[in-house]
Amino acid sequence: MTRFVLRRVAQGVFSILGASVIIFIITRLSGDPVVLMLPPEAPEALVTQTRERLGLDLPVWQQYLMFLRDAATGDFGTSYRWEMPVRELILDRLPATVYLASAALIFSLMLSIPFGVISAVRRGSWFDRFAKGVAMLGQAMPNFWVGLLLIIVFAIGLEWLPAYGADTPKHVILPAIALGWYPVAAQTRIVRSAMLDVLDSDYIRMGRSVGVPEGLLIWKYAFRNAAVPLVTMMGVYFASMLGGAFVVEVVFAWPGLGRTVVEALFARDFPVVQAGVLFAAVMFVIANLLVDLSYGLIDPRIRHDR
Protein backbone atom coordinates (compact mmCIF):
# COMPACT_ATOMS: atom_id res chain seq x y z
CA MET A 1 0.00 0.00 0.00
CA THR A 2 2.75 2.43 0.97
CA ARG A 3 4.69 1.59 -2.20
CA PHE A 4 1.54 2.19 -4.24
CA VAL A 5 0.94 5.58 -2.63
CA LEU A 6 4.58 6.60 -3.08
CA ARG A 7 4.51 5.53 -6.72
CA ARG A 8 1.33 7.52 -7.37
CA VAL A 9 2.73 10.57 -5.55
CA ALA A 10 5.89 10.39 -7.67
CA GLN A 11 3.76 10.17 -10.81
CA GLY A 12 1.73 13.09 -9.56
CA VAL A 13 4.83 15.24 -8.99
CA PHE A 14 5.95 14.42 -12.53
CA SER A 15 2.53 15.44 -13.90
CA ILE A 16 2.60 18.70 -11.93
CA LEU A 17 6.09 19.52 -13.23
CA GLY A 18 4.93 18.77 -16.76
CA ALA A 19 1.93 21.06 -16.35
CA SER A 20 4.14 23.82 -14.97
CA VAL A 21 6.53 23.64 -17.95
CA ILE A 22 3.68 23.74 -20.46
CA ILE A 23 1.89 26.64 -18.81
CA PHE A 24 5.15 28.53 -18.34
CA ILE A 25 5.99 28.33 -22.02
CA ILE A 26 2.46 28.96 -23.29
CA THR A 27 1.96 32.09 -21.18
CA ARG A 28 5.17 33.55 -22.53
CA LEU A 29 4.11 32.90 -26.09
CA SER A 30 0.88 34.84 -25.51
CA GLY A 31 2.32 38.34 -25.58
CA ASP A 32 3.99 40.98 -23.49
CA PRO A 33 2.31 41.60 -20.12
CA VAL A 34 4.13 44.89 -19.56
CA VAL A 35 2.24 46.56 -22.41
CA LEU A 36 -1.00 45.69 -20.63
CA MET A 37 0.25 46.84 -17.24
CA LEU A 38 1.44 50.29 -18.23
CA PRO A 39 -0.63 53.16 -19.56
CA PRO A 40 -0.57 53.40 -23.35
CA GLU A 41 1.58 56.52 -23.45
CA ALA A 42 4.29 55.03 -21.21
CA PRO A 43 7.68 55.70 -22.78
CA GLU A 44 9.84 52.84 -24.03
CA ALA A 45 12.32 53.38 -21.19
CA LEU A 46 9.62 52.68 -18.58
CA VAL A 47 8.50 49.59 -20.51
CA THR A 48 12.07 48.26 -20.58
CA GLN A 49 12.63 49.14 -16.93
CA THR A 50 9.42 47.35 -15.89
CA ARG A 51 10.33 44.30 -17.94
CA GLU A 52 13.69 44.14 -16.17
CA ARG A 53 12.10 44.63 -12.76
CA LEU A 54 9.80 41.65 -13.37
CA GLY A 55 12.64 39.52 -14.73
CA LEU A 56 10.93 39.20 -18.10
CA ASP A 57 14.11 40.17 -19.93
CA LEU A 58 15.79 36.91 -18.84
CA PRO A 59 15.79 33.76 -20.99
CA VAL A 60 12.66 31.65 -20.45
CA TRP A 61 14.59 28.68 -19.03
CA GLN A 62 16.18 30.97 -16.45
CA GLN A 63 12.79 32.43 -15.53
CA TYR A 64 11.44 28.90 -15.15
CA LEU A 65 14.24 27.76 -12.86
CA MET A 66 13.75 30.84 -10.70
CA PHE A 67 10.02 30.11 -10.59
CA LEU A 68 10.67 26.50 -9.53
CA ARG A 69 13.16 27.57 -6.89
CA ASP A 70 10.72 30.07 -5.38
CA ALA A 71 7.70 27.78 -5.74
CA ALA A 72 9.54 25.08 -3.79
CA THR A 73 9.57 27.48 -0.82
CA GLY A 74 5.91 28.40 -1.32
CA ASP A 75 6.66 31.74 -2.98
CA PHE A 76 4.75 32.11 -6.24
CA GLY A 77 5.75 35.70 -6.78
CA THR A 78 3.66 38.86 -6.90
CA SER A 79 0.70 39.36 -9.17
CA TYR A 80 1.48 41.86 -11.93
CA ARG A 81 -2.08 43.07 -11.85
CA TRP A 82 -3.05 42.91 -8.20
CA GLU A 83 0.40 43.73 -6.81
CA MET A 84 -0.14 41.25 -3.99
CA PRO A 85 1.49 37.90 -3.21
CA VAL A 86 0.09 35.25 -5.56
CA ARG A 87 -0.02 32.66 -2.81
CA GLU A 88 -2.36 34.89 -0.84
CA LEU A 89 -4.51 35.56 -3.89
CA ILE A 90 -4.79 31.88 -4.80
CA LEU A 91 -5.22 30.47 -1.32
CA ASP A 92 -7.92 33.03 -0.55
CA ARG A 93 -9.87 31.91 -3.63
CA LEU A 94 -9.16 28.19 -3.72
CA PRO A 95 -11.46 27.15 -0.84
CA ALA A 96 -14.44 28.84 -2.51
CA THR A 97 -13.87 26.94 -5.75
CA VAL A 98 -13.29 23.62 -3.97
CA TYR A 99 -16.47 24.24 -1.96
CA LEU A 100 -18.46 25.00 -5.10
CA ALA A 101 -17.02 22.07 -7.05
CA SER A 102 -17.69 19.72 -4.11
CA ALA A 103 -21.26 20.96 -3.76
CA ALA A 104 -21.77 20.57 -7.51
CA LEU A 105 -20.34 17.04 -7.42
CA ILE A 106 -22.61 16.12 -4.53
CA PHE A 107 -25.61 17.56 -6.41
CA SER A 108 -24.70 15.60 -9.55
CA LEU A 109 -24.34 12.38 -7.54
CA MET A 110 -27.61 13.02 -5.74
CA LEU A 111 -29.30 12.99 -9.13
CA SER A 112 -27.25 10.50 -11.11
CA ILE A 113 -27.10 7.68 -8.55
CA PRO A 114 -30.88 7.29 -8.02
CA PHE A 115 -31.47 7.98 -11.71
CA GLY A 116 -28.95 5.34 -12.80
CA VAL A 117 -29.97 2.72 -10.24
CA ILE A 118 -33.73 3.06 -10.67
CA SER A 119 -33.41 3.29 -14.48
CA ALA A 120 -31.49 0.01 -14.48
CA VAL A 121 -33.95 -1.69 -12.16
CA ARG A 122 -36.95 -0.38 -14.13
CA ARG A 123 -35.40 -0.59 -17.56
CA GLY A 124 -37.67 0.90 -20.24
CA SER A 125 -40.13 2.35 -17.71
CA TRP A 126 -41.41 5.94 -17.68
CA PHE A 127 -38.90 6.73 -14.95
CA ASP A 128 -36.06 5.45 -17.13
CA ARG A 129 -37.15 7.83 -19.88
CA PHE A 130 -37.76 10.70 -17.43
CA ALA A 131 -34.33 10.33 -15.82
CA LYS A 132 -32.70 10.19 -19.24
CA GLY A 133 -34.56 13.37 -20.22
CA VAL A 134 -33.59 15.32 -17.11
CA ALA A 135 -29.99 14.20 -17.41
CA MET A 136 -29.79 15.02 -21.11
CA LEU A 137 -31.30 18.44 -20.49
CA GLY A 138 -28.42 19.27 -18.18
CA GLN A 139 -25.92 18.22 -20.80
CA ALA A 140 -27.69 20.11 -23.56
CA MET A 141 -27.73 23.47 -21.76
CA PRO A 142 -24.54 25.48 -21.19
CA ASN A 143 -23.98 26.08 -17.50
CA PHE A 144 -23.97 29.89 -17.77
CA TRP A 145 -27.42 29.71 -19.33
CA VAL A 146 -28.66 27.33 -16.66
CA GLY A 147 -27.27 29.75 -14.10
CA LEU A 148 -29.14 32.70 -15.57
CA LEU A 149 -32.36 30.67 -15.76
CA LEU A 150 -32.00 29.64 -12.14
CA ILE A 151 -31.54 33.27 -11.11
CA ILE A 152 -34.63 34.34 -13.05
CA VAL A 153 -36.77 31.58 -11.57
CA PHE A 154 -35.50 31.15 -8.00
CA ALA A 155 -34.10 34.60 -7.18
CA ILE A 156 -36.25 37.05 -9.13
CA GLY A 157 -39.43 35.00 -9.61
CA LEU A 158 -39.89 32.93 -6.49
CA GLU A 159 -37.48 34.92 -4.30
CA TRP A 160 -36.39 31.71 -2.59
CA LEU A 161 -32.67 31.97 -3.05
CA PRO A 162 -30.09 34.76 -3.41
CA ALA A 163 -28.97 35.77 -6.89
CA TYR A 164 -25.28 36.11 -6.16
CA GLY A 165 -22.54 35.88 -3.56
CA ALA A 166 -21.14 33.29 -1.18
CA ASP A 167 -22.12 34.51 2.26
CA THR A 168 -24.35 31.66 3.52
CA PRO A 169 -24.97 27.96 2.67
CA LYS A 170 -28.05 29.10 0.74
CA HIS A 171 -25.78 30.94 -1.69
CA VAL A 172 -24.17 27.74 -2.94
CA ILE A 173 -27.38 26.06 -4.04
CA LEU A 174 -27.95 27.75 -7.39
CA PRO A 175 -24.30 27.76 -8.52
CA ALA A 176 -23.94 24.11 -7.49
CA ILE A 177 -26.97 23.16 -9.59
CA ALA A 178 -25.70 25.18 -12.56
CA LEU A 179 -22.30 23.53 -12.37
CA GLY A 180 -23.38 20.06 -11.32
CA TRP A 181 -26.21 19.40 -13.74
CA TYR A 182 -23.97 19.00 -16.78
CA PRO A 183 -22.24 15.71 -15.80
CA VAL A 184 -25.46 14.10 -14.56
CA ALA A 185 -26.16 12.48 -17.94
CA ALA A 186 -22.76 10.83 -18.19
CA GLN A 187 -22.80 9.75 -14.55
CA THR A 188 -26.32 8.32 -14.88
CA ARG A 189 -25.23 6.36 -17.93
CA ILE A 190 -22.24 4.92 -16.07
CA VAL A 191 -24.33 3.91 -13.06
CA ARG A 192 -27.13 2.51 -15.22
CA SER A 193 -24.93 0.29 -17.38
CA ALA A 194 -22.84 -0.87 -14.43
CA MET A 195 -26.04 -1.72 -12.54
CA LEU A 196 -27.40 -3.63 -15.54
CA ASP A 197 -24.24 -5.76 -15.59
CA VAL A 198 -24.36 -6.38 -11.87
CA LEU A 199 -28.08 -7.14 -11.82
CA ASP A 200 -27.45 -9.90 -14.37
CA SER A 201 -24.78 -11.54 -12.22
CA ASP A 202 -25.16 -14.85 -10.38
CA TYR A 203 -24.83 -13.53 -6.86
CA ILE A 204 -27.77 -11.16 -7.36
CA ARG A 205 -29.92 -13.99 -8.75
CA MET A 206 -28.81 -16.09 -5.80
CA GLY A 207 -29.71 -13.30 -3.39
CA ARG A 208 -33.16 -13.01 -4.89
CA SER A 209 -33.72 -16.75 -4.77
CA VAL A 210 -32.86 -16.90 -1.05
CA GLY A 211 -35.23 -14.02 -0.32
CA VAL A 212 -32.91 -11.05 0.32
CA PRO A 213 -35.17 -7.99 0.32
CA GLU A 214 -35.09 -6.22 -3.08
CA GLY A 215 -34.07 -2.83 -1.62
CA LEU A 216 -31.18 -4.35 0.29
CA LEU A 217 -30.14 -6.36 -2.74
CA ILE A 218 -30.08 -3.35 -5.02
CA TRP A 219 -28.65 -0.65 -2.80
CA LYS A 220 -26.25 -2.72 -0.69
CA TYR A 221 -25.11 -5.62 -2.84
CA ALA A 222 -25.61 -4.47 -6.40
CA PHE A 223 -24.90 -0.75 -6.17
CA ARG A 224 -21.73 -1.21 -4.14
CA ASN A 225 -20.17 -3.15 -7.01
CA ALA A 226 -21.73 -0.96 -9.67
CA ALA A 227 -20.22 2.15 -8.02
CA VAL A 228 -16.62 1.28 -8.93
CA PRO A 229 -16.69 2.76 -12.47
CA LEU A 230 -18.43 5.88 -11.14
CA VAL A 231 -15.81 6.32 -8.45
CA THR A 232 -13.11 5.84 -11.10
CA MET A 233 -14.48 8.80 -13.01
CA MET A 234 -15.11 10.95 -9.93
CA GLY A 235 -11.60 12.44 -9.94
CA VAL A 236 -12.08 13.48 -13.56
CA TYR A 237 -15.49 14.97 -12.85
CA PHE A 238 -14.20 16.87 -9.86
CA ALA A 239 -11.29 18.22 -11.88
CA SER A 240 -13.57 19.25 -14.72
CA MET A 241 -15.81 21.05 -12.23
CA LEU A 242 -12.83 22.88 -10.80
CA GLY A 243 -11.97 23.98 -14.32
CA GLY A 244 -15.53 24.58 -15.43
CA ALA A 245 -16.37 26.61 -12.35
CA PHE A 246 -15.14 29.80 -14.01
CA VAL A 247 -18.29 30.57 -15.95
CA VAL A 248 -20.53 29.78 -13.03
CA GLU A 249 -18.33 31.86 -10.74
CA VAL A 250 -18.81 34.85 -13.01
CA VAL A 251 -22.59 34.37 -13.29
CA PHE A 252 -23.08 34.12 -9.53
CA ALA A 253 -20.25 36.49 -8.54
CA TRP A 254 -18.71 33.56 -6.71
CA PRO A 255 -15.29 34.54 -5.33
CA GLY A 256 -13.42 31.55 -6.65
CA LEU A 257 -10.12 30.62 -8.22
CA GLY A 258 -11.39 29.94 -11.74
CA ARG A 259 -12.54 33.51 -12.26
CA THR A 260 -9.26 34.82 -10.85
CA VAL A 261 -7.11 32.66 -13.11
CA VAL A 262 -9.05 33.30 -16.30
CA GLU A 263 -9.01 37.05 -15.68
CA ALA A 264 -5.28 36.73 -15.03
CA LEU A 265 -4.90 34.90 -18.32
CA PHE A 266 -6.47 37.78 -20.23
CA ALA A 267 -4.32 40.27 -18.33
CA ARG A 268 -1.17 38.19 -18.99
CA ASP A 269 -0.65 38.05 -15.23
CA PHE A 270 1.86 35.21 -15.53
CA PRO A 271 2.52 34.52 -11.82
CA VAL A 272 -1.20 34.09 -11.10
CA VAL A 273 -1.79 31.88 -14.14
CA GLN A 274 1.22 29.69 -13.31
CA ALA A 275 0.25 29.29 -9.68
CA GLY A 276 -3.42 28.75 -10.55
CA VAL A 277 -2.62 25.97 -13.00
CA LEU A 278 -0.17 24.45 -10.57
CA PHE A 279 -2.71 24.44 -7.76
CA ALA A 280 -5.35 22.97 -10.09
CA ALA A 281 -2.88 20.25 -11.11
CA VAL A 282 -2.19 19.48 -7.44
CA MET A 283 -5.93 19.27 -6.75
CA PHE A 284 -6.36 16.97 -9.73
CA VAL A 285 -3.55 14.68 -8.59
CA ILE A 286 -4.88 14.57 -5.02
CA ALA A 287 -8.43 13.85 -6.21
CA ASN A 288 -7.24 10.97 -8.36
CA LEU A 289 -5.06 9.59 -5.59
CA LEU A 290 -8.04 9.62 -3.23
CA VAL A 291 -10.12 7.86 -5.88
CA ASP A 292 -7.47 5.16 -6.27
CA LEU A 293 -7.30 4.67 -2.53
CA SER A 294 -11.08 4.49 -2.21
CA TYR A 295 -11.33 1.43 -4.47
CA GLY A 296 -10.21 -0.82 -1.67
CA LEU A 297 -12.96 0.48 0.56
CA ILE A 298 -15.69 -0.11 -2.01
CA ASP A 299 -14.47 -3.38 -3.44
CA PRO A 300 -12.40 -5.53 -1.06
CA ARG A 301 -11.13 -7.54 -4.04
CA ILE A 302 -9.06 -4.50 -5.03
CA ARG A 303 -6.08 -4.26 -2.74
CA HIS A 304 -3.12 -2.11 -3.65
CA ASP A 305 -0.63 -4.17 -1.67
CA ARG A 306 -1.24 -7.27 -3.73
Partner: peptide, 18 residues
Protein backbone atom coordinates in the same frame (compact mmCIF):
# COMPACT_ATOMS: atom_id res chain seq x y z
CA UNK B 1 -19.50 47.73 -2.62
CA UNK B 2 -20.18 44.30 -4.09
CA UNK B 3 -18.55 43.02 -7.27
CA UNK B 4 -20.99 41.34 -9.67
CA UNK B 5 -19.46 40.99 -13.14
CA UNK B 6 -22.43 39.33 -14.87
CA UNK B 7 -24.92 41.89 -16.19
CA UNK B 8 -28.12 39.94 -15.63
CA UNK B 9 -27.08 38.95 -12.11
CA UNK B 10 -26.33 42.56 -11.23
CA UNK B 11 -29.74 43.64 -12.47
CA UNK B 12 -31.35 40.68 -10.66
CA UNK B 13 -29.67 41.74 -7.42
CA UNK B 14 -31.22 45.21 -7.80
CA UNK B 15 -34.61 43.69 -8.56
CA UNK B 16 -34.53 41.38 -5.56
CA UNK B 17 -33.37 44.19 -3.26
CA UNK B 18 -30.07 42.48 -2.48
Amino acid sequence: VKIIPEDLTRVAALQTGE
